[in-house]
Write a protein that binds this DNA or RNA. Structure first.
Lengths: 144, 144
DNA sequence: AAGAATCATTCACGCTCTGAATTGATGGAC
DNA sequence: GTCCATCAATTCAGAGCGTGAATGATTCTT
């Protein structure tokens, strides 16, 4: 056989694109895109208050994109920009209560999506998949 | 916990993006992008000679994009456009020998990528992952 | 034979993201 | 204390990728 379409890499690529699209549809109502959710999730997970540069590095995007994402989230009242008093060049982003609530809704949407696409999988398979994907993500240096 | 980042959907999305990027880097040398490979793979898998509209539907993209992809592949000598004599509106695309060879190299590149990212997985896990991803892809209507 | 439908193609546009230039703040050299 | 190299955030122009509407050629319907 030796078919490209049956490699893990190619399947991850195409499935990933579909997931992004479907997730985008689900959160469209909140005026959010997947990257906004990624940014909010990074804020929640972050141990210390994060500068925008750190976030850009964590998300693997250009700092200028973080500016645009933060602008939008700030307009929605989901994050707050606060000048770091110790180093006033830095803007530290923090999730507001509304941001926490929004993020929870996005998590719920992602959960629904999980249920939809894994409907035909046994519970054990689903757990195994979740675990394996987590390890792959860690392996390529994605924030967990 | 209830974290977005740990859902299957979100992980598939981010991992998928990484895979696309890495795969793109590997095939850049052949002057190809992932979508070109998707098109060639669809041509190989297709039972009958495929019209560009069919291919667009199969790949889930606009017909005008198939035109651009086919233009590029034709320039590379990887595919040939032949007017369907039965219905001269249709262009049927077929892989040339060079196209077959190119596709094989891309399959090899994808295989390498598989090895790289699943290096930390047991062989049984890798097989399970491949199988599960295949079923998910089928579930969302992706061509197998 | 006329008109509606279908396929490929072209083209203008929207969206997303990046990289370079700008502004404001910091910190070390002297 | 004053320069000046460095760094963070921001703005902005532009590249890249994809879509959807218009065009032209062909086929189907009646």
């Amino acid at each position: 056989m030796n078919d490209v379409k049956q490699t893990i890499a190619f399947r991850l690529g195409t499935l990933g694109a579909v997931m992004q699209d479907r997730f985008a549809s689900k959160i469209e109502f909140y005026d959010l895109k997947p990257k906004h959710v990624g940014l909010m999730a990074a804020l929640k997970g972050g141990t210390a208050a994060a500068s925008q540069q750190d976030l850009a590095a964590r998300l693997g995007v250009a700092p200028s994109l973080v500016v645009a994402l933060a602008d939008h989230l700030e307009r929605l009242g989901a994050v707050e920009r606060v000048r770091d008093p110790g180093d006033r060049r830095r803007q530290t982003l923090t999730l507001t209560e509304h941001g926490v609530a929004l993020l929870a809704r996005c998590a719920a949407a992602a959960g629904e999506l999980d249920d939809e696409i894994t409907a035909s999988l046994a519970a054990s398979e689903r757990a195994a998949l979740r675990d394996t994907l987590g390890r792959l993500a860690a392996g390529v240096g994605l924030p967990s």
